[in-house]
Design a protein around this nucleic acid. Structure first.
Lengths: 107, 107
DNA sequence: CGACCATATAGAGAGATGTCAATGTGTATG
DNA sequence: CATACACATTGACATCTCTCTATATGGTCG
């Protein structure tokens, strides 16, 4: 666990919006273009673009151009990091080991 | 996976603040009173109370009175639900199975 | 090149969020 | 009861967030 709380908080903030959480889940089934995602929601295209920017800049989602389309996909490393965050919190509960927050003063 | 995105988004919003994420991690080592938590942060007592209310009302954290003190602890069920959320997203990626968002129209 | 399509950006506005100082509430204790 | 302690609530404020309309950008195709 080398990361700081700040990065995890950023991930969680990116997913704390219901629309973005749904998008993240949709992407778990594979790459999608913005137009595909837009069809699932009652939001305007600029609003979707705003959400995709937040997901991309957080590092949770990767993006690439494919001609006219922007293709989005989940960044596996960040998903793994999120899993580990909650797994480690669970471990603390079972083992009564040291807190994550100790030894993180450099953050 | 019977829960709705709205509940998960609420959990994640509660943890999307760096202070609250640290508190949640601190609680993974066992029950703490507000005064113990307050010592770890440079915030006022009302601000901590505000954060604890958000964590409690989200269902992530349980609270009980012990004389003058309020004791806080992690709600294990909600932690398990969070773990499953990300585990299932990971499964989708591997199995190319159905999306979580399908069949959730009742939400 | 010109028209068109998909997406991004800018600007504005309503509402949510995080923080504090001041004050209220509830519990123990002399 | 009076005091003190731990915590909650209120009200105010600055900032952030989400959404839209309008407009810009960038790639494709006739």
């Amino acid at each position: 666990m080398k990361e700081c709380y700040r990065v995890y908080a950023m991930y969680l903030k990116a997913l704390s919006d219901e629309t973005r959480l749904k998008i993240f889940d949709m992407l778990s089934n594979g790459e999608l273009c913005a137009c595909d995602i837009l069809e699932e929601f009652n939001i305007t295209q600029p609003t979707l673009s705003y959400h995709m920017k937040i997901l991309s800049e957080s590092g949770l989602v990767d993006s690439r151009r494919d001609g006219v389309w922007m293709k989005y996909s989940i960044n596996r490393k960040s998903l793994e990091a999120l899993k580990q965050l909650f797994d480690n919190i669970g471990l603390n509960m079972d083992n009564t080991s040291s807190h994550l927050y100790k030894g993180m003063d450099f953050c």
